[in-house]
C-alpha cells in the first residue's frame, strides 16, 4: 500500500531539493512549499496507510467498529501544515522585502551579512 506513495514522496523531495538549490529566490520559495508537502506526506506515510476509513467513532459506540486510519500522524501533520504555511508566508515576505531592499533576486548576490571582502580579524590581546 505504501510503496507507490513512498516513491511519489521521493519524487517530491527530489523536485523540492532541486528547486531549492537554484539561484532565484522564487524557485527557492517554490521548492520550500513543495518540501513542506513532502515532509508532511513522509510523516503521514510513516504511520502506515489505510484506505478511506477516517479515525472517527460512530455516535452509538465508544470505540470504532473497524480498524481506522492511524490518527496520530494525522494530528501531527495537521499542525505541521498550518505551521509550514505560516513559515512559507514569512519566507515569502522575507524574500519580497529582500528583493526590494537589495534589488536582486539572486541569492549569491545577497552579501550584506557576509561581505565578499571581509577584513581580517584583529590580532593582539
Amino acid at each position: 500500500m505504501e510503496a507507490g506513495v513512498a516513491i511519489l514522496i521521493g519524487l517530491f523531495f527530489t523536485v523540492a531539493v532541486y528547486l531549492m538549490l537554484s539561484k532565484q529566490l522564487v524557485r527557492i520559495l517554490l521548492g520550500i512549499a513543495i518540501l513542506g508537502n513532502s515532509v508532511n506526506m513522509l510523516i503521514f506515510t510513516n504511520g502506515r496507510l489505510t484506505r478511506e476509513v477516517p479515525p472517527l467513532i460512530p455516535p452509538h459506540l465508544y470505540v470504532p467498529e473497524t480498524a481506522t486510519a492511524n490518527p496520530l500522524p494525522q494530528a501531527l501533520v495537521l499542525t505541521a501544515i498550518v505551521i509550514s504555511f505560516s513559515f512559507f508566508a514569512f519566507l515569502l515576505v522575507l524574500a519580497f522585502r529582500a528583493y526590494q531592499e537589495l534589488g536582486t533576486d539572486e541569492v549569491n548576490k545577497m552579501r550584506v551579512a557576509e561581505p565578499e571582502h571581509d577584513q581580517t580579524p584583529p590580532q593582539g590581546y
Binding site: 505504501e2 513512498a6 514522496i9 521521493g10 527530489t14 531539493v17 506515510t45
Partner: peptide, 19 residues
Amino acid sequence: GVVAVAVGLGLTLTLLAIT
C-alpha cells in the same frame, strides 16, 4: 540534480524500509 535525486532516493528507500 544528482544531489536532489540522491536525497529523494534516500528518503524513498528509508520510508520503504520503515514501512
